[in-house]
Amino acid sequence: MFHLYWADEGGVPAGDRGLAYGDGLFETMSVTGDRPPLLAYHLDRLSRDAGRLAIPAARSELEKVCSQALARYSGHYGARPWVLKLTLTRGSGGRGYRPEPGIQPNLVISHSTAPAPADTDGVVVDFSRVPLTVNPLFAGIKSLNRLEQVMAARELRGEIYEVLMSNRDGHVVEGTRTNLFVRSGDAWITPPSATLAVAGVMRRYVLDRLHTAGEEVREAPLSLVDLVGERCQGLWLTNSVLGVVSVRNLAGHDLPVDQRLATIVGSPAILD
């Protein structure tokens, strides 16, 4: 169904469309031992969004490859957390933007050590100077087109853990690698899915957990006052590898920090 490449054995062909045009998508998932807690969520998104891009990738085949990868790499890490990455491209072939009919997708499997956990006392965050543009046709897809995030991530210096990106309407949408949740009044607020460059699997899991817990949740645009105004009871970053991270300072403004969202969601090590 697709050409499979193990990154530690060699790269994809030079004519790969993901390399040439960003014509593909990817997933990065946290693994403890041989268990990726959010595997089902990752496979759901990868197969669904591949369909949106008209890249053939059956969920069952992706699941088989994940099983192979877990068996292949889990022994390198023992009980330590690590990261499994799947990069799916449309394949190789076709001069210019138009792909050749019937080309087979390429799937590249790689792995790496997990990043250090964030400070439980909260992290320092700033605003990015790089604007975020989201094409409605591709909203939420974790595609290989991440140049805006790359440029924004260059602003991460010193103790700055993350920078938040805003769209042309001035609404704060997401971080370079994280989605956002704000506690305001009696509700949790997160930017609407249609405005997101990446709709993270951890975001989806957090929403599921909040709904299960009977919490009020709203998808609504976030302005500056929502984040640093007196109604803000906390700001959290979410990412499937980083988990749920509290923000203690945003662009010089101290924010309240507590573990209520992490408590509702649970530890990434035991997510099902």
Rank of each mutant, 00 (worst) to 15 (best):
R129W: 00
R129L: 10
R129Q: 14
R129T: 15
R129G: 14
R129P: 00
V130G: 05
V130Q: 12
P131F: 01
P131C: 06
P131E: 05
L132E: 02
T133E: 15
T133P: 00
V134A: 08
V134K: 03
V134M: 03
V134L: 04
V134C: 09
V134N: 04
N135T: 14
N135Q: 14
P136C: 09
P136K: 10
L137V: 14
F138P: 02
A139T: 09
A139Y: 04
A139V: 07
A139L: 02
A139F: 06
G140I: 07
G140W: 05
G140Y: 07
G140P: 05
G140C: 09
I141S: 02
I141Q: 03
K142W: 11
S143K: 03
S143H: 14
S143Y: 10
S143I: 06
L144M: 13
L144P: 03
L144K: 01
N145S: 14
N145R: 11
R146V: 07
L147G: 11
L147R: 12
L147D: 12
L147S: 15
E148N: 12
E148L: 11
E148C: 08
E148Y: 05
Q149R: 13
V150T: 13
V150W: 12
V150Y: 11
V150N: 11
M151S: 13
M151W: 15
M151Q: 15
M151A: 14
A152G: 06
A152L: 05
A152K: 01
A153H: 09
A153S: 15
R154Y: 10
R154P: 03
R154K: 13
R154N: 07
E155S: 07
E155G: 07
E155K: 03
E155R: 02
L156I: 11
L156T: 05
L156F: 10
R157H: 15
R157T: 15
R157M: 13
R157C: 13
R157I: 14
G158S: 05
G158M: 06
E159S: 12
E159D: 15
E159A: 12
E159H: 00
E159R: 07
E159M: 00
E159I: 00
I160F: 00
I160W: 00
I160H: 01
Y161V: 05
Y161S: 08
Y161M: 08
V163I: 09
V163S: 05
V163Y: 04
V163T: 06
L164N: 01
L164Q: 04
M165P: 02
S166E: 09
N167H: 09
N167K: 06
N167V: 05
N167R: 08
N167Y: 12
R168K: 01
R168A: 15
R168V: 13
R168N: 08
R168W: 07
D169A: 14
D169H: 10
D169W: 00
D169L: 11
D169V: 00
G170M: 08
G170P: 05
G170E: 07
G170A: 08
G170F: 08
G170C: 08
H171C: 13
H171K: 10
H171A: 14
V172Q: 05
E174D: 04
T176E: 08
T176S: 13
R177P: 02
R177Y: 13
R177T: 11
R177Q: 13
